[in-house]
Amino acid sequence: MNIVAITACTVGVAHTYIAQDRLIEAAKKRGHSIYVETQGTIGSENVLRAEDIKNADVVIFAADVAVSKEERFEGKLIVRVKSEVAIKQPDKLLEKIEQKMKEIK
């Protein structure tokens, strides 16, 4: 599965990067490709390329604040969770997404 994600927390620092790391770790462990953009007080980092978004099967917003430039993901399956979910239960989150993808296909 091709995943793109955006992580963002209210302060824009710690949880943003922890969520990024946990999602990447869980996705790779499950055999998925993933690209994660972080959005925070220092701006956006690892900004997703249009090609990555186009090829994505699913978009994860692990964010506690509004995601900027959300219109880039129009027409994509978007899963919205708090950053805490990506930090504490990334495997369970991806398992639920995998199940959802099976139901769609």
Rank of each mutant, 00 (worst) to 15 (best):
A62S: 15
I42P: 00
D52K: 04
T38E: 07
F61G: 02
V81T: 08
V85C: 00
L77V: 11
S44I: 10
A63E: 01
N46Y: 14
K28H: 15
R30L: 11
G40C: 08
E95V: 07
V81S: 02
A62Q: 13
V79D: 03
T38H: 06
H15F: 12
V47W: 00
N2F: 09
Q20F: 06
A26E: 06
A50D: 13
Q89A: 15
I18R: 13
R22W: 04
I24W: 01
I6P: 03
A26W: 02
V85A: 02
A5W: 05
I6R: 04
V4H: 02
D57G: 14
V13D: 03
K69T: 08
I60Q: 01
A27Q: 09
D57P: 07
D21R: 15
D64P: 01
L93E: 10
I3M: 02
K29A: 13
R22T: 12
V4S: 04
K88E: 10
L77M: 13
A27P: 12
E98N: 12
E70Y: 00
A8F: 00
K88L: 13
A26Y: 01
K69Y: 08
K28L: 14
M101C: 08
T41Q: 05
K69Q: 13
M101L: 15
R30Q: 13
H32C: 07
S68Y: 01
L23G: 06
V59G: 03
T41N: 03
G40V: 09
K28A: 10
